[in-house]
Structure formats: C-alpha cells, structure tokens
C-alpha cells in the first residue's frame, strides 16, 4: 500500500457554523494540509448519506461532515438529524468493506478556527496510513 498517498478529502460544511469556522481558520491564518476541498451546504442535516457514498464512489479517501454544535443548529435541529444519520452510516461502512475511519462527523462553531484546523490535520494524519480508498471507488 502506498504510504505516501495524499488522501483526498471532501468536507461538507454547514454554512452557518462550520463553513464560517473554516473561514475563521483562514482569517487567523492557521495552516492545514490542502488535501481537503470544502462544499458548503445550508445545514449538516441536508447532507444525504448518498452524498457521502457518492464521494467514496468517485474516489474520495475521506469524507468529513461538520455542523453546528448540537443545540446550536441555525435550523433548530437539522444537526440532530445529521448526527443520527451519520452514526448509522458510520456503522454501515464496514459492511461495505470500508474503514469507518474514512468518514468523520464533527461540530465546529463559527468561532472555532483552531478546532477546524486540528480536525483536518488529524483527519489527514489518520487517513495517510490507510492508503488510497479502493473498495468503493468506481472503476473508470
């Protein structure tokens, strides 16, 4: 397995907290690996599990979903739905032959630039030893 593989990560960030939190990381000029490409969605509750599986299908090595802290959802309870959905999805992944560590959910508020940076750093470090994700990858 190629240990030098640079994992490709897609991060679904909710507009109100986590995307703003990643902006805060930028404003504070905190550095993190460029392996992650963000997709800003309205709410973590709008992230369908299909999006995540599609990302793996398209060859993502890791997928992150990040929302407001539980109880702070801009839409009252969208992140609660996300939390339940994502917990189930994570349990499903091993049955698909995928390491559950390739998928992560986090809570990052608009002020938590440092936390966001750390999450990305840790996630990249966690994914590197796993090498490229091939189980769900669509053969082109």
């Amino acid at each position: 397995m190629n240990k030098d593989h640079e994992p490709r990560i897609v991060a679904f960030l909710c507009k109100w907290c986590s995307s703003a939190g990643s902006d805060m990381a930028g404003v504070s000029r905190l550095e993190y690996p460029p392996n992650v490409i963000p997709i800003t969605v309205m709410c973590s509750g709008s992230v369908s599990p299909i999006y995540i599986l599609s990302a793996f299908n398209l060859g993502a090595d890791g997928v992150l979903v990040s929302g407001c802290h539980p109880g702070d959802c801009h839409y009252i309870k969208g992140n609660m739905y996300a939390r339940r959905r994502m917990a189930l999805l994570k349990e499903l992944l091993p049955y698909l032959g995928l390491e559950p560590e390739r998928f992560q959910m986090s809570w990052v508020s608009a002020a938590e630039g440092v936390k966001f940076t750390q999450i990305i750093k840790d996630f990249v470090a966690q994914l590197k030893p796993l090498g490229p994700q091939t189980y769900l990858r669509r053969s082109l």
Binding site: G45, S48, Y81
Partner: peptide, 28 residues
C-alpha cells in the same frame, strides 16, 4: 431552505433550489 427534507426523502423527490442533488454530485 435548510434541506433537512432533501436528505430525508428516500426518493430524492424534494430538494432545495440551487443546491440540488445533481449540483452536489457534479461538484463532487
């Protein structure tokens, strides 16, 4: 426009305008 419904619907029959499933797949 939070889209919680879009992630819930089993048939993708409901989605938020200008952030549709198709748009997400294309971005991915």
């Amino acid at each position: 426009g939070c889209g919680t419904c879009a992630a819930t619907c089993l048939r993708a029959a409901i989605e938020v305008k200008n952030l549709t499933h198709l748009q997400i797949y294309d971005m991915l």
